[in-house]
């Protein structure tokens, strides 16, 4: 027994040492550090308190959604509807709160009603995606492509082609959720941190996380191993919906409005963050820490472009696209010798 412990400790130490030099797992972290160095060398204000806080807050939306996407992708699925889902939830939340205003006033109750509805809507939308892919046996790509279109058109319809605005009296009550801070960090960052920690525990330490990985590796093996595949897959979409709802709750007070252009291309940024982080697109391997770094990398690129005149800010998308392609290319290349596949 004692010997076993020694062996375990020893192998753990060796393992840690090896992992330190594993480019595939360290890649995203190295990329982020390089980006920070570039940012700092272009403008020392890049590492100022204000900018760092701003950067983290901006990362929070995509980051929170991407944590949910990590579960969906690890289990072999995909959710393209998150951007539209965020838009339609924002819109409905604003409408609900504006209506509740008359009965419940401008106090915290109205905001809580709005947040509660957001959560319910997110979970419901996630469940619909999950139900259609598992029980309906339709490919996730098709289902979420469909719901993406539906949600986007719904928000346009609710806003009558324009913008849905939150009542100005409510903004004072709701505002602190985006603009407020706690212990020097903005609230959205705290939410991001909490979601990340919960996500990490869920994926790496629980039955559910292990089952997601198993299903993403081979659904048939999972079924033969007493895993309720349909249920687990549905849960991943529900988690995704929940994450979208959380992101929406902290997003709405930022502008206090929702329109057809809310959350456009968020799905791509979320998926990109997941993939840059090292999660395998076809499933079976997921990394929450990587996803968080991926989200930070994407926001940092935009931030650096804002700071410099070298490249036009309009090329933000180009830079992000290049980073995604390079990141995946680096993951594909085999850096370990002795492998023959």
């Amino acid at each position: 027994m004692v010997e076993d412990n020694v062996n375990v400790a020893e192998s753990r130490a060796v393992h840690k040492w090896l992992r330190k030099f594993d480019l595939k797992t360290m890649g995203p972290a190295i990329a982020l550090i390089i980006l920070c160095i570039i940012g700092y060398s272009l403008n020392t204000a890049f590492l100022s308190d204000g900018n760092i806080t701003n950067l983290l807050t901006r990362s929070a939306f995509i980051g929170i959604i991407a944590v949910g996407a990590t579960f969906v992708i690890t289990a072999g699925g995909i959710d393209l509807s998150v951007g539209s889902m965020a838009a339609v939830i924002s819109g409905l939340m604003i409408m609900i709160m504006n209506n509740a205003l008359e009965t419940f006033g401008t106090g915290i109750t109205t905001v809580l009603i709005g947040c509660g509805c957001s959560i319910i809507l997110g979970v419901g939308a996630g469940w619909v995606n999950g139900f259609l892919t598992t029980k309906g046996k339709i490919e996730a790509f098709i289902v979420t492509l469909g719901t993406m279109g539906i949600y986007r058109s719904l928000v346009t319809y609710f806003a009558d082609g324009g913008t849905l605005s939150l009542d100005f009296d409510l903004r004072d009550t709701y505002g602190p959720i985006y603009y407020g801070s706690f212990l020097g960090l903005p609230i959205p960052v705290w939410v991001f941190i909490a979601v990340s920690i919960l996500g990490w525990i869920l994926l790496n330490r629980t039955l559910f996380g292990r089952y997601c990985t198993a299903i993403g590796s081979n659904e048939s093996v999972a079924k033969y191993s007493a895993i309720n595949v349909d249920r687990i897959k549905t849960y991943t979409y529900i988690i995704q919906g929940l994450c979208v709802a959380m992101a929406t709750i902290i997003y709405v007070p930022r502008l206090g409005s929702a329109s057809a252009s809310t959350g456009v291309l968020w799905e791509l940024e979320a998926i990109a963050a997941v993939i840059i982080g090292g999660t395998v697109l076809k499933g079976g391997y997921g990394r929450i820490v990587g996803t968080i770094l991926g989200a930070l990398i994407l926001t940092t690129i935009g931030n650096i472009l804002n700071f410099t005149d070298l490249i036009s800010n309009y090329l933000n998308g180009t830079m992000q696209g290049l980073i995604i392609i390079v990141a995946v290319w680096l993951q594909r290349a085999d850096w370990k010798k002795g492998s023959n596949k």
């Binding site: 990985t213 198993a214 590796s217 081979n218 048939s220 093996v221 079924k223 033969y224 079976g284 391997y285």
Partner: peptide, 9 residues
């Protein structure tokens, strides 16, 4: 290979 083991794990 199909139903028994997760070959990539």
């Amino acid at each position: 290979k199909e139903n028994g083991l997760l070959l990539t794990q």
